[in-house]
Design a binder for these strands. Structure first.
Length: 475
RNA sequence: GCGUCCAUAGCUUAGUGGUAAAGCACUGCUCUGUGGAGGCAGCUAUGAGGGUUCGAUCCCCUCUGGACGCCCCA
């Protein structure tokens, strides 16, 4: 045999992507199943859109956002079309809504989706180039109750997964009417201080002034303190909408946090925006000192919005140990996008949605050792010996399947010892032994693995035998 | 895009300027039809490419990949 030169680098998933192996995949499946179940209960129905869309479709994400600027997987097809792997879920769904005239359906149209999204970024904790999201969209409803329902269902999913320790950060970005006014104010404020801004923020001033608010440079944080806040400039309608949203959240006892500096990376958002953070019960590292940003936020939120009381269950004071990264990662986010449809069609369609990052949920579940999936062992294992035993075992397995009983086997193995070892490793309760002799006699040996007791019975009575055991809760 | 650290078998780790050791796992045998143990055997690695050197897995550079942070985001 000539030696083959093996390209080892081929045996590696592309950067930022990974295989989800069986054990982890169980968690994915569990999360997705749970999420679908809850979303369906609330009236959301599934939608599956292509992983590929026309590149241009995503421009409403924002011309100067990183996503559009440099994170999209875009390419030209052989036919000359410009396509992209979808970097987010909302726009394709809005496209679908418009394409299929869903405005003719009873409104709002409530949809959920689950699948992969793609962004070309440098990978790090909780960030991959292909990542999973479970998302909800409620299209065709302007009322604040829609915002609340989206948040309710998302948080309910978290609770049901045993991840009840979260805080919803929420803010309003105003609408077409009031945001430009606010933007202007913000610009006025910062223009006078342009020399004190960091390099990035000087750029932001031109491209996306709202982003100035979440800069983490010390000098910018300092300036932010006195910066005008959106809520002060929100028009009456936006103000009312925002108040209604967190009145609903109060009612639902969802721990939230008015974060006046929350702005999102996607330009199409209007009014409500939110991000959900997970707060582990026990921080991985003790916080050395309270981070400036958060104490600062907390005071402001109370001060700025007295009309409603902050929920009695005070959101945990966002302890963000400086070095414990997991806490900083949003596990879900979303917002309202009443203007989005306007960029794609003449129709004005309101909408609100949000998505959970499945990769991050899985990570939390694994790290915090939350047992969501019971380990399941097969209860019965079929051992076969000899050619006839092997043949007959195929027949028996099929009978078990029809009877809806699950039976494990290792048909490729030949030695009894080997198969028994596997049976034992799988912690199986009963082994069935079907050898040449039994195959000819039409019998089979049932072995209780715990006691080692065996009895020989007719194959024809096998299913009934186990049905009876099951009835008596013997396994 | 930037920064810090990292790279030895499927996994977890040793080790040395003279081509590598162990545990776990896996496969088989011991034992043509009765498991968990033991024994024996087998398998598999210095991420890629350059440089320094008589000689590099070890020192240097580049690349690739990873972890973490920044930016940004789920």
């Amino acid at each position: 045999m000539p030696k083959i030169k093996i390209k080892k680098e081929l045996l590696h998933t592309p950067k930022g992507t990974r295989d989800i192996l069986s054990d982890e995949a169980k968690n994915w499946e569990f999360i997705e199943t749970k999420a679908k179940e809850i979303a369906s209960y609330y009236g959301f129905r599934q939608i599956r859109t292509p992983h590929l869309e026309k590149t241009e479709l995503f421009t409403p994400v924002g011309e100067f956002t990183d996503i559009v600027e440099k994170q999209m997987y875009s390419f030209r097809t052989r036919g000359g079309d410009h396509l992209s792997l979808r970097p987010e879920g909302t726009i394709p769904i809005m496209r679908s809504y418009l394409q299929h005239g869903m405005n003719a359906l009873p409104q709002p149209v409530m949809l959920y989706y689950s699948g992969s999204f793609f962004r070309h970024e440098s990978p790090q904790r909780g960030r991959f180039r292909e990542f999973g999201q479970f998302g909800l969209e409620m299209i065709g409803e302007e009322d604040a109750i829609a915002d609340a329902i989206v948040i309710r269902v998302m948080t309910l999913i978290l609770e049901e997964l045993g991840l009840g320790q979260f805080t919803v950060h929420i803010n309003t970005l105003g609408d077409q009417e009031c945001r430009p006014i606010y933007r202007k104010e913000l610009l006025n404020y910062y223009r006078r201080k342009v020399n004190y801004l960091c390099k990035d923020c000087k750029k932001r001033l031109k491209t996306n002034p709202l982003r100035l608010l979440d800069c983490v440079e010390e000098k910018c944080i300092e300036l932010k303190k006195d910066a005008p806040q959106m809520i002060e400039y929100a028009c009456d309608a936006c103000r009312k909408h925002f108040r209604e949203v967190f009145e609903f959240l109060d009612k639902l006892q969802i721990p939230y946090f008015l974060d006046h500096h929350l702005v999102r990376g996607l330009d199409y958002y209007t009014r409500t925006v939110f991000e959900i953070f997970y707060n582990p019960p026990v921080p991985l590292e003790e916080p050395k000192k309270a981070p400036i940003i958060n104490t600062d936020l907390e005071e402001e939120s109370v001060k700025t919005f007295p009309p409603q009381e902050v929920p009695t269950e005070e959101p945990p004071p966002m302890i963000v140990p400086e070095r414990a990264a997991p806490l900083k990662l949003a596990i879900g986010s979303g917002g309202r996008y009443d203007q989005l449809s306007g960029t794609l069609s003449p129709k004005k369609i309101a909408g609100v949605g949000g998505a959970l990052g499945i990769d991050r949920l899985v990570e939390i579940i694994i790290k915090s050792k939350i047992q969501i999936i019971k380990e399941t062992h097969p209860k019965i294992f079929l051992i076969q010996l000899g050619p006839q035993g092997k043949q007959q075992s195929l027949v028996l397995l099929e009978e078990f399947r029809k009877a809806k009983m699950s039976v494990a086997s290792a048909l490729a193995k030949d030695s009894l010892k080997n198969q028994l070892r596997i049976t034992n490793n799988l912690k199986v309760q009963y082994a069935l032994i079907l050898g040449q002799k039994e195959a000819i006699d039409g019998t089979i040996i049932v072995r209780d693995m715990a006691s080692g007791a065996q009895e020989t019975i007719d194959q024809s009575k096998l299913i009934d035998y186990f049905k009876k055991l099951k009835k008596n809760k013997k396994y």
